[in-house]
């Protein structure tokens, strides 16, 4: 465990807690893409299959349970909670995310570390996480300026992946046999997707204005 990875996990946790806070405090999920949340739930379930077979550390197990629990709670909230579900605006959340699921699964069938059930699903979850934010970014662009908590949610998600890239560089430099190309390449793609969002976030923060994304 290195500081970059720990910081990455913490910002990831913060992003999920910010989202839960927003939904719980405002009893509203306006501006949030249900499709992105569903993709994240799939990512965590597909990746943490080893939860009961491989024990790595208490920290690892606890964090996996928290991530799976929170992501399912958010999807449940947005789909079934009698107050929150009415604030979900499905005609702006129109990204066809099932193509992302299919594309990532096909890619995982061809590019993986070992052709085993667990490894293919692991690679699938890595690819899917890289693109899971797309429905949310499309929704943000479509709805123009958005509320701060949603913006902070995306910001912390981007920061988490950026810390993980520093973590992979650090591990590559310090651990002889470290070669995790699938996660590193997918992580780079994911962070690049956030880059334009970060740019507009920084501009709006500098001008102390609300975030305006180009339509």
């Amino acid at each position: 465990m290195n500081i970059f990875r720990f910081a990455g996990d913490m910002t990831h946790l913060i992003s999920i807690l910010v989202l839960l806070l927003k939904i719980y405090a405002t009893k509203s999920c306006s501006g949030i893409s249900l499709k992105t949340q569903e993709l994240y739930a799939i990512v965590f379930v597909a990746r943490y299959l080893d939860l009961f077979t491989d024990f790595i550390s208490v920290y690892n197990t606890v964090m996996k349970l928290v991530f799976i629990g929170c992501s399912l709670a958010i999807v449940w909230c947005m789909r079934l909670h009698r107050v929150v579900r009415r604030t979900y605006n499905k005609d702006v959340d129109t990204f066809r995310h099932y193509f992302l699921v299919l594309g990532c699964f096909l890619l995982a069938l061809f590019v993986h570390e070992k052709f085993t059930f667990q490894e293919v699903l692991w690679a699938f979850s890595i690819y899917l996480e890289a693109v899971a934010i797309l429905p949310q970014l499309v929704l943000l662009q479509r709805s123009g300026n958005v509320d701060n908590l949603t913006v902070q949610y995306v910001f912390f998600l981007g920061a988490y992946r950026a810390f993980y890239i520093l973590n992979w560089i650090y591990r590559y430099l310090t651990e002889p046999h470290f070669g995790r190309w699938i996660a590193s390449v997918a992580g780079l793609v994911q962070t690049a997707l956030y880059a334009d969002f970060f740019y507009y976030y920084f501009i709006s923060w500098k001008n102390n204005a609300k975030l305006q994304l180009p339509a």
């Binding site: 990831h12 024990f55 790595i56 550390s57 991530f67 996660a183």
Partner: peptide, 10 residues
Amino acid sequence: LEKISNHDEL
């Protein structure tokens, strides 16, 4: 103690 497995990251 942390077991170094191939997928020791979250």
